[in-house]
Each structure stands twice: as C-alpha cells, then as structure tokens.
Write a protein that binds this DNA or RNA. Structure first.
Length: 104
DNA sequence: ATGTTGACAGCCA
DNA sequence: CTGGCTGCCAACA
C-alpha cells in the first residue's frame, strides 16, 4: 500500500505506547488516550492511527473504544477479542464501560 | 487553498 | 447510556 508516511510515526509510537499499557479486561476511550499523549482535542487522530496500527506491529487496539463504549465500526472481530479477555459486553457492539473502564 | 470525511469528545435533553 | 448538535484536527479529493 502507500502507507509509508501518511501519518507521523512519532505520533503512532506515542499512541501505541499508551495502548500497550491498557491492562487485560479493561478498555480505554480515544479521548483518554489523546489526553495521555498530549493531544486532548485530537481524539479522532487516535482512531486514525489505530486503524493502521496493525501495520506498525501487534497492539491491543481492541481495548480502545469511543466515549459511548461502542466498538470500532467495520471491525467485526473486535467483539470476540474483548470477550476472550473477559471484558463485559453490554451487547454485540457495546462494552460495559461501567465495569471495564481503565482507571488510571 | 477550499471543502468533505472520519475507529471522536463534550454538552444538553 | 442513548440520541442530537457543535467543535477539533489531520488526511484526502
């Protein structure tokens, strides 16, 4: 593909570095990660990076959801990955943030 | 340079 | 948490 420098690798490493620290059975929101890397108002960028994160290595990007607890659209496999870790699911497309939110 | 789009967040009802 | 509206930033046409 053409992904060689469509996104700053520096940003990719910062985000993946945080994603890598999410404990099993817990999930984090994009805004939460955005804040940890110093891009609080740039949560959308986190999503864009995670969408191509698989090309930069293996990271638990399945533990990252939006503020409503909804999983990534267009990625059916994510639900099963979370269930395998013991993450409580509210339904087929939402996690129970009430009990799986990653508290720092 | 201008306008759309998106793995989003925050505020309000 | 759900649904609607607005705000932000970077990638893309």
């Amino acid at each position: 593909m053409k992904w060689g420098k469509c996104i700053d690798e520096q940003l990719v490493y910062e985000i993946l570095s945080v994603v890598e620290e999410i404990p099993e059975g817990k999930v984090a929101t994009y805004g939460q990660i955005a804040r940890l890397i110093g891009r609080e108002n740039n949560a959308r960028l986190v999503g864009r990076v995670l969408s191509i994160a698989e090309y930069y290595g293996s990271y638990p990007c399945q533990r990252v959801v939006n503020h409503a607890g909804r999983l990534a659209p267009g990625w059916k496999e994510q639900r099963e990955l979370l269930e395998a870790e013991g993450v409580p699911m509210k339904d087929a497309s939402h996690v129970d943030l009430k009990n799986s939110r990653w508290e720092l």
